[in-house]
């Protein structure tokens, strides 16, 4: 019955996290998995997560960044429609450590949507080592979108996935699901929710989010 179980768990978009050890990949996955109201299915701990985004199923693949696992299997990237390359804004080495993953990314889908994410943004005011200019330059060199985010505060974490969703499926994917399909459960995400000044629900979701930290 393995076959029957599998077909009902199809994945529309494979998203792979890449980056050196300790940059906070797993924390970003967890923050994303736990912070929205849309269904999450953590099937292999925080290493592999299924997440619904406006009716589409994202398969989020975490990877190990330790030096000892430098020969990661090409299967991690095979068929990936999006890649999130994570560096730590407080560790300059972590940005250029991403060079090691470029060969692996060759096995991703053609036109794989890349996002360069600077993690630990909450520590940036005191300990920033990677400047925005350097990160942007690197992002341009690998044809990636650049975002800085914090798994601790939740800043911009949702944006990463919203950008990927819109970049891969187009803007229509968001508007279509907002027109009454079951996947239109409101989410306190950055680019999908409009903060209405008279809307209590937005504030409620915002305060819930704060508590998660």
């Amino acid at each position: 019955m393995a076959a029957a179980a599998a077909a009902s768990k199809h994945v529309d978009l494979k998203i792979v996290f890449l980056g050196a050890s300790g940059v906070g990949k797993t924390s970003l996955v967890q923050r994303y998995a736990n912070d929205t109201f849309e269904p999450t299915q953590s099937t292999i701990g925080a290493a592999f997560t299924l997440k619904t985004w406006h009716g589409r199923r994202f398969g989020v693949w975490d990877t190990a960044g330790q030096e000892r696992y430098k020969s990661l299997s090409a299967f991690y990237c095979r068929g990936a429609g999006a890649a999130i390359l994570v560096y730590d804004v407080t560790k300059a080495d972590s940005l250029h450590a991403l060079d090691a993953y470029m060969d692996l990314l060759a096995s991703a889908k053609d036109g794989c949507f890349k996002v360069l994410v600077g993690s630990k943004l909450d520590l940036a005011p005191d300990a920033r080592e990677v400047t925005l200019d350097a990160a942007r330059e690197y992002a341009t060199s690998i044809d990636a979108l650049h975002i800085e985010a914090s798994a601790k505060t939740g800043d911009n974490v949702m944006d990463i996935f919203n950008h990927i969703g819109v970049g891969v499926f187009g803007f229509d994917a968001m508007t279509a699901s907002a027109n009454g399909s079951p996947a239109s459960t409101p989410t306190p995400t950055a680019s999908t929710s409009t903060v209405r000044l008279d809307d209590d629900s937005a504030a409620k979701s915002g305060s819930d989010k704060k508590k998660c930290c």
Binding site: A6, H10, V11, K14, I44, A47, L50, S73, F75, G79
Partner: peptide, 15 residues
């Protein structure tokens, strides 16, 4: 399977 948990488990095994 390459997109889902089965692919993930195989990638983990190979690595």
């Amino acid at each position: 399977y390459c997109m889902g948990e089965e692919g993930y488990a195989l990638a983990t095994t190979q690595t």
